[in-house]
Each structure stands twice: as structure tokens, then as C-alpha cells.
């Protein structure tokens, strides 16, 4: 035992706890229960250790020790690759795939959460060493609030209006409202689709949202989440029964065609509203300089 043992231990414990808070397995069941979780808790523990040891190293004037943080960075970039590879491999076996944009979003979240753990344990150990355990506990609470903020991205319900619209056929063409979805030739398939299909129109609340929901990755994420939560009337070898989203080119609305096993309209609306807005799909045309100049000259 020396003067650094307790602060380092405290930092490691808080960091590992932070990782376990961020490791919520929700309806997506990812990371997979137990084994997947063990991997990430272990990595979180390593990250916490790295963060906690950095401060005493500096205090002992071992400045070169800080370079091991760069090793940590490359280590956690590997985590991102690992998650991306696993999920991409598994994606081809999903009835409704996640899509690359969604996978990239998940992988980035895994990497960034390890950095959050490093910062948390670095700060808690530093505060413990400089002041005392109470200051350290105070900064723990602040870190917790920051982590909560990072964990809650925006959801689709905040940026679009969701309305239920039945589906209908015009000849062989399947339509939701006035949005053409696809051509279904067989009368038998058309009957199945009329029986099981549901249509929703998502209307963007402002101009920025238009390009976000037009993103193919974002659309695939909607279909995947709805299919996971509501079930999907589909099997391998029935390519005609495929949930699809098409766009109205005139006003940027999108028509969501789904084949749920649970035909509950309110629930479907809630599920679509709760789909995360993917970081990689967000566009802000209103932030463009060209746009701002245009508004000045008016």
C-alpha cells in the first residue's frame, strides 16, 4: 500500500462502474447477453486502469508514461473494428438487416464509451489525489451526468410527424398515400400484403430533417428496429415480402411499408418514434454558409 493505491483503486472502480452503466442491453440484444458483456466489461476495466494510472505517473514526473494513452487509443480503435466486423458478418443472416450506417453508429459508440471511461477514471483519481475523496465523489456525479447526456441521442419522434396511412394497390403497384413502393405481380402475394402490411407516412418537421430521413442507412435502421420489435411477416425465399421505405421526391416525406406480426397501430407509431437518429445520417443544410448568406441578402 502506498499513497496512490486507494486513489487508483477508486478510479478503476468508478471507471468500471461507468462502463457497466453504459452497457445497457435493450431490445436490440446487443452486446449479446453474458459473453458479449464480459468482453466489454473487461475492456472497460482496462480502460479504467489506464485512466487511473495516468495521474500518479505525472505526479511522479514520469511524463513518458503518458504515451501509453496512445496505445490505449489504438487498442480501442480495434474495438470499433471488432464490433463492425462482427455485426457486418451477422447482418447477412438477419431477415431485415441493420444496414452499414447503423452498424457504424454502434461501433463508434463502443469506441467512444471506452474513452469516456478513461476520462472518468482519470478525473476521479486526479481529484482524489489533489483534494480528497469527497471532491472525487463530486466529480463522479458530474461524470455520470455527462455520460447520461452522451447516451441519449435524439429519436425519430422528435424530428418527424408520424401518421398511419393504409396501403393500396393500383394495378400491380403498391402505394402508401401517393408514394409508390414496389410492383407486386402475383394476386396471391397482393392479398398477403393487403392482409399483413401497414403503411406510415413520416413528414419531416423542417428542411434539415429531409436529408436525414432520406439517408438510406437511416431508413434501413427504421425497418430493422420496427421488424425486431413488432415481428416481421417474412422468411428466406419470399423476397416479395420485404419491408421498404420510399421517398416522395416532391416534399421529402417518406412512406414506410412494414409487415409486422403484431398489427397495433399505436405501438408501431411509438416504435418508429423511438428509432434512434443515426449520427452518421444527420445533415444540417441550414448551417451551411451559402444558406446564411442567402438569408442576409433578402
Amino acid at each position: 500500500m502506498n499513497e496512490y493505491t486507494l486513489p487508483i483503486l477508486f478510479g478503476v472502480i468508478i471507471g468500471t462502474l461507468a462502463r457497466s452503466i453504459m452497457l445497457k442491453t435493450d431490445y436490440r440484444q446487443y452486446p449479446t447477453y453474458l459473453h458479449g458483456k464480459v468482453i466489454h466489461l473487461a475492456l472497460g476495466f482496462i480502460a479504467a486502469g489506464l485512466g487511473a494510472v495516468a495521474v500518479p505517473a505525472i505526479m511522479e514526473k514520469e511524463f513518458t508514461a503518458i504515451t501509453f494513452l496512445t496505445i490505449a487509443a489504438s487498442q480501442f480503435r480495434e474495438v470499433r473494428n471488432m464490433e463492425r466486423n462482427t455485426l457486418s458478418e451477422l447482418d447477412s443472416y438477419e431477415l431485415v438487416p441493420r444496414g452499414n450506417t447503423y452498424i457504424e453508429g454502434i461501433a463508434v459508440a463502443f469506441e467512444s464509451r471506452n474513452y469516456l471511461v478513461i476520462f472518468t477514471s482519470l478525473l476521479t483519481t486526479a481529484f482524489y489525489l489533489i483534494w480528497n475523496i469527497w471532491a472525487s465523489l463530486g466529480v463522479t456525479v458530474i461524470c455520470y451526468l455527462i455520460i447520461r447526456k452522451f447516451m441519449s441521442g435524439s429519436t425519430l419522434g422528435e424530428i418527424v410527424d408520424i401518421t398511419y396511412k393504409g396501403i393500396h394497390f393500383e394495378g400491380a403497384g403498391l402505394y402508401i398515400d401517393n408514394i409508390y413502393i414496389m410492383n407486386i405481380g402475383l394476386p396471391q402475394r397482393q392479398k398477403e400484403i393487403e392482409k399483413y402490411g401497414m403503411g406510415f407516412i413520416l413528414t419531416p418537421k423542417n428542411f434539415d430533417v429531409r436529408s436525414t430521413i432520406a439517408n438510406l442507412g437511416q431508413r434501413q435502421a427504421i425497418l430493422h428496429d420496427v421488424s425486431v420489435t413488432m415481428g416481421v411477416f417474412r422468411d428466406s425465399g419470399t423476397p416479395a415480402l420485404v419491408p421498404l421505405i420510399k421517398r416522395d421526391l416532391d416534399d421529402g416525406r417518406i412512406g414506410v411499408f412494414i409487415l409486422p406480426q403484431d398489427k397495433d397501430i399505436d405501438k408501431a407509431k411509438r416504435v418508429i418514434g423511438a428509432v434512434p437518429v443515426l449520427e452518421n445520417a444527420i445533415r444540417m443544410p441550414s448551417e451551411s454558409k451559402a444558406n446564411r448568406k442567402g438569408s442576409e441578402s433578402k
Binding site: 394495378g171 400491380a172 414496389m182 410492383n183 407486386i184 405481380g185 402475383l186 394476386p187 396471391q188 402475394r189 425465399g237 419470399t238 423476397p239 416479395a240
Partner: peptide, 17 residues
């Protein structure tokens, strides 16, 4: 219709009219 339904299943494609 019958032939198309069978071929759709066999070929793993979608029949369009």
C-alpha cells in the same frame, strides 16, 4: 399465376406484373 408463384419461390426472385 401458378407458374409465376412457383418460379418466384424456386428462383428466389420477385414476380412483377
Amino acid at each position: 399465376d401458378n407458374v409465376a408463384a412457383n418460379l418466384e419461390a424456386i428462383l428466389d426472385g420477385i414476380s412483377h406484373a
